[in-house]
Design a protein around this nucleic acid. Structure first.
Length: 254
DNA sequence: AACCTGTACAACCGCCTAGGA
DNA sequence: ATCCTAGGCGGTTGTACAGGT
């Protein structure tokens, strides 16, 4: 039996994205938006799975993304939100404009966890670690029985041995910090730290605001595409024609 | 200079959920 | 009410790079 793959994986490319692929995806999405991720790779002329395209876009190519390390304020906010929400990275990311769940998750695992440990705090419970003293069994039991702030979804299952959010916090970070991140959607990604992959070195044209990403002519594209794999017949040139409608300059990418 | 180890982060995988047929 | 599909989420893995020996 087994699950059906999200898309037919035969002949699909995996691994790091090339600058060329990034360009194709960005060009396509900026001019057409995304109606259905499964069709995006076909229409954009990419040998990728739709899921992969979505991930690449949301985690890396979106023009409203901030790049670079999290600021101190953002970090504090993440810690605070993690205390309240647990490993609900998407919820946490929603409170930090321009940041992605993946980015925050990575930052948490590589930086914040260590920082908290250095501070003598358990990164899971946010409580001081009592490594020397024997934990009081009674207290432990009480802690485990404390109601979890975050409902009872999958994340909690795993965290039952590691997470018991409480309100007693050493860092005393105020949620008000979130106001510091009232970033407009026109936040330029090029203004922030340079990115690791080639595609991110691209300077975004000024018009790139998230709101500008509209479904410009999906009906047309879809009808041109038909039901089957004929989608790949749509050339990039056609897409660039679409792009010019929204003021997108092909030369930026070529 | 070459090799080894640790770190950071991009990308993938599998599961869950919402929404439509 | 049930099934199916697409999108979304969180955990994990893979890989490139930096620093140390």
């Amino acid at each position: 039996m087994g699950r059906q793959p999200c898309c037919e994986k035969v002949g699909l490319k995996k691994g790091p994205w090339t600058a060329d692929e990034d360009q194709k995806l960005v060009t396509f999405l900026l001019s057409n938006g995304h109606c259905c991720w499964r069709l995006v790779p076909k229409l954009a002329g990419l040998l990728r799975c739709g899921k992969s395209c979505r991930l690449r876009w949301t985690n890396y190519l979106r023009p409203d993304l901030k790049r670079g390390l999290l600021s101190e304020e953002e970090e504090k906010l993440v810690i605070d939100l993690h205390e309240q929400l647990g490993n609900r990275w998407s919820k946490i990311a929603a409170r930090l404009p321009g940041r992605t769940d993946n980015e925050i998750k990575n930052h948490w695992n590589t930086h914040i966890k260590k920082k908290l440990k250095k501070m003598g705090l358990d990164p899971v419970t946010h409580r001081p670690v009592m490594s020397l003293a024997q934990p009081d069994p009674l207290k432990q039991q009480q802690q485990q029985q404390e109601p979890s702030v975050s409902g009872g979804t999958g994340a909690d299952d795993k965290e039952e041995e590691e997470e018991t959010p409480t309100s007693a916090q050493p860092q005393g970070v105020a949620c008000a910090a979130s106001s510091a991140s009232a970033v407009s959607s026109s936040c330029s990604s090029s203004a922030s730290a340079s990115a690791a992959t080639p595609g991110a070195d691209v300077d975004w044209p000024g018009l790139f605001e998230v709101d500008a990403i509209l479904d410009i002519d999906w009906a047309g594209l879809l009808s041109a595409c038909g039901d089957d794999g004929g989608c790949s017949a749509i050339g990039v040139d056609m897409l660039f024609d679409q792009c010019s409608d929204v003021g997108f300059d092909q030369d930026v990418w070529m």
